[in-house]
């Protein structure tokens, strides 16, 4: 247990020590998205009855920050450790593969949470939000951070070089998050793309998270919860299997 505790602490300390890059920078990026999109679209788009576009946008941006930063945390930590070779410090001690998984994923959830709170805190200057269901908000944030933290572990283990990780990030994570309804409701899409969106697990995370604020969503929140929990369970099992067989970590 001490091994897990220390690895978790180390992973949190790692991103906290470079907080300007790992927390402040993504908060600023989200704010820029908010300023630009709300400026352009505020008067033209209304998604939900009685909810301004800027207010609609904020939960999406917060969740996107949670997801992207949770992924970045575990994946960048692992690839850096692998490339520099200091992964041996974690592989030599008596840390089980379950502890390994839990530490990296929990630290990812913390990083995603800290950035998400940062974005939320800053945007509260600009918009008023309803807080219909705080537990839904918290639940989806944790599930989203967990899913992306686990995906980050997979990507970090699979990648041998930084450009492979960048490909994973740019060709899988970014399209999944951008095409998930962060900036729009999928009801505004043509029927075909609406159907496609239903195969994107991130759509359910954003939709469920937004439900926590406005009490309105594109699909029932329990459906989103079930999809998110199912995804996390599947990814957890897959990642634990990779770690147990020592894939690309123990030759």
């Amino acid at each position: 247990m001490e091994g897990f505790r220390t690895l978790f602490y180390k992973e949190v300390l790692r991103f906290w020590k470079v907080g300007f890059q790992t927390v402040a920078a993504p908060v600023l990026t989200s704010l820029l998205f908010l300023l630009i999109f709300s400026h352009v679209l505020e008067r033209h788009v209304q998604v939900y009855e009685g909810v301004s576009y800027t207010s609609f946008l904020v939960p999406g941006l917060v969740m996107m920050s949670v997801l992207q930063n949770a992924f970045a945390n575990s994946s960048s930590s692992l690839i850096q450790s692998k490339v520099t070779g200091n992964i041996v410090f974690v592989l030599l001690p008596p840390i089980s593969y379950r502890e390994f998984f839990a530490a990296y994923v929990l630290a990812s959830i913390v990083r995603g949470g800290v950035v998400g709170l940062g974005v939320l805190g800053m945007t509260l200057w600009f918009v008023d939000l309803d807080w219909r269901g705080p537990l839904w908000i918290l639940g989806f944030a944790v599930l989203g951070g967990g899913i992306m933290g686990a995906l980050g572990v997979i990507a970090g283990i699979w990648s041998d070089k930084f450009d492979q990780l960048a490909a994973f990030q740019n060709f899988i994570i970014m399209p999944l998050t951008f095409l998930s309804g962060v900036f729009y409701s999928i009801h505004s899409l043509p029927p075909f793309w609406q159907q496609v969106s239903h195969f994107n697990p991130v759509f359910y995370l954003i939709d469920g998270f937004r439900y926590g604020f406005f009490g309105t969503s594109d699909v029932p929140p329990l459906t989103s919860l079930a999809v998110a929990a199912g995804c996390l369970a599947a990814l957890t099992l897959f990642t634990l299997w990779l770690l147990r067989i020592g894939y690309k970590l123990r030759a």
């Binding site: 180390k10 070779g85 041996v88 410090f89 030599l92």
Partner: peptide, 29 residues
């Protein structure tokens, strides 16, 4: 078992004492 690896590896985020404390924690101390 204590192993001194051949490659000159280090974690650039930490000081010497931090690295040793973290390594102790990994071993349950």
């Amino acid at each position: 078992l204590g192993v001194v690896p051949q490659e000159l590896v280090f974690d650039p985020f930490f000081s010497v004492r931090e690295a040793l404390r973290i390594q102790s924690g990994y071993f349950g101390i």
